[in-house]
Design a binder for these strands. Structure first.
Lengths: 339, 339
DNA sequence: ATTAGCACTCAATATCTCGGACTGCTAATA
DNA sequence: TATTAGCAGTCCGAGATATTGAGTGCTAAT
């Protein structure tokens, strides 16, 4: 059905549409890419491609626009992902090489860099503490009624929280807590910090609930928190599709709805770059947009997910090429850090 | 010049415009507020108010719209700021009463609450560490090549950072660092942590620069960082003024430009609520918007600034009333915490 | 299988008309 | 002198109508 020329023309139409944001005419294809066949031939192929569902028309006599199915074929079979320049590679290396920062900070930097290079809006979510094992727990006394609780996990993630009390805490108690928590929890999944642990500690240590409860509560919050980071929202607004107020409003709504962003970033599997084009997305609000995400992970532990959200007419080649590279760099960075 | 009736009519026009977002006609004023005078009389007063610069017309035969000067008079002299309901007061109390969190967290919660009640976009910036005095410094060894550095200031602000090293650190060294830093810096302004301190420590302690440099560097970053927090960007987009694509784009641009947000929040003085209406703002990009901010501070130390950004046609009465209350609550909360 | 050529469609833009929402002004009134 | 009724005049905005031109689909020829 799809001979080589039709595939070629499909790719050219998508390329052209990504470039111009205007429905693509047969004449434009001939002029720019196919000087040795006539526009009538291209029209015939276009009609065929439309019949097969790869292209759409905005009205009866308009040029063609790729359908979600068209983009899908384009992304899956027609593109190569080496669309990244030496300058860009250097820039990414520079940005990601500083290892003074923790995993969360690194994810943020990667998110910003991705937005800078692609000129799209990017978003990321930090590491999932809940999946990790406890390597070390420390409590530090600050003043007389405040502790800082720190957890280090097996992937090197550091999480800390402030815990305030209504009564004074003794340095001795802190030492006991440190010993006790480490003894009990080292090597265990972080989710072990829960109310049953609370009961156990009260029984064993005979400490007042006024001390234990705030600790467990704050630690639990810590595990659950998922920080979302957004970069370059304004960049999307320069794109011609956002001339439609409707679309612009939807877009702002999506970015502002944290639960939705969380959903988006939390679906998909590790290792791969995930691409959702238009209504391939389960969520209806996303039907006019495309989302490309990847997870930075070690084994089955997610250290962060970074995504790009933009119009369906996205420069997939650039976006995916840059993502692949950043993904690789993040992995390298992590390996070197833990060697 | 401005007799009582004219003032009253000006207030009514601004109220009405804030309510409807449409130019206000003389007939509308008579119908809604001034049933005992005729529209012609109102027209005469409107003409006068326009001559004095409080009102503007969008075209020769249109109704009137407040000018920046008009809003200013309205805000300064014609409004009372008790536009807050019992339910709202309760809601705010509930949100702000939990003291388990640090100052930064509290500012965030206040920002979110303000947006929820007013339905405007809110933004805040965390405490200025640079203005504060050091109460306590602690270093905690995590694993063998990582420290957490914690600073507690005189206002109870807690700041912490991860510091990574290329060589192992001994527990003994950490203790020395703790002793040394506290001894040297307790009660001092936080800005004392700088490169001259670095030199001094190297001279005194004879520790390698590989240990001291990362510490100083990360601590300096910590002092400089100013976290901006944004809430309810999508709420603004429901307002009729944002039907203008131009304006909507400007708005997103403003919110996305962190330096600009920083500027906005960092101008103005403590204690007072600051109001910038339209081109009263120095920054030209803000000419179509109004900004209302207040600082949560203790003495001359700023614990955070919270602002609302929206159209000039803002419900100043509601916004300022709610802000006044939240501001008071934050102060109470702080006092209670430090009593 | 390809192509030239032409009829046909439809979006986009410009032009015009018309109603009505306002004001400003004048002259009458309290 | 302050207020008001009444009316002429302005201009916005919503439709209606015409015009242009970019593109397609189809037919018939190559």
């Amino acid at each position: 059905m799809l001979d080589e020329r039709k595939k070629k023309i499909l790719k050219e139409i998508v390329d052209e549409y990504i470039d111009t944001a205007e429905p693509v005419s047969s004449a434009a294809i001939v002029e720019k890419y196919e000087s040795n066949i006539s526009s009538a031939t291209v029209r015939n192929d276009m009609a065929e491609l439309e019949k097969l569902g790869y292209l759409e028309k905005t009205h009866i006599s308009s040029g063609r626009v790729p359908s979600a199915k068209g983009y899908r074929l384009y992304v899956d079979e027609l593109l190569k992902y080496d669309n990244i320049s030496l300058e860009e590679i250097k820039y990414i290396q520079e940005k990601l090489e500083n290892k003074a920062n923790g995993i969360e900070e690194l994810t943020k930097i990667a998110t910003t860099t991705l937005s800078e290079i692609t000129h799209y809006t990017t978003v990321s979510i930090g590491p999932k503490a809940s999946q990790q094992l406890i390597e070390e727990i420390k409590f530090v006394l600050l003043g007389s009624r405040m502790l800082m609780g720190i957890i280090v996990t097996d992937t090197g993630l550091v999480k800390e929280t402030i815990i305030k009390f209504d009564e004074d805490i003794e340095e001795e108690q802190v030492e006991t807590l440190n010993y006790f928590f480490n003894n009990k929890l080292k090597g265990e999944p972080i989710e072990k910090i829960d109310t049953s642990l609370e009961k156990y500690i009260i029984r064993e240590l005979k400490y007042s609930i006024n001390i234990i409860r705030p600790i467990i509560e704050q630690m639990k919050k810590l595990i659950e928190e998922e920080k979302i980071y957004l970069e370059g929202a304004n960049k999307s607004f320069e794109l011609p599709e956002f001339k439609s107020l409707e679309l612009a409003k939807n877009f702002v709504n999506i970015l502002d709805t944290k639960e939705l962003m969380r959903d988006i970033l939390n679906t998909g599997f590790a290792e791969d770059i995930q691409i959702y084009i238009g209504d391939e997305n389960e969520n209806k609000e996303l039907k006019d947009f495309s989302i490309v995400t990847f997870k930075h992970s070690v084994g089955d532990k997610e250290l962060g997910t970074i995504g790009i959200i933009g119009p369906k007419r996205m420069n997939y080649s650039k976006v995916i090429s840059v993502m692949k590279y950043i993904s690789k760099k993040l992995d390298d960075n992590f390996k070197e850090d833990n060697k």
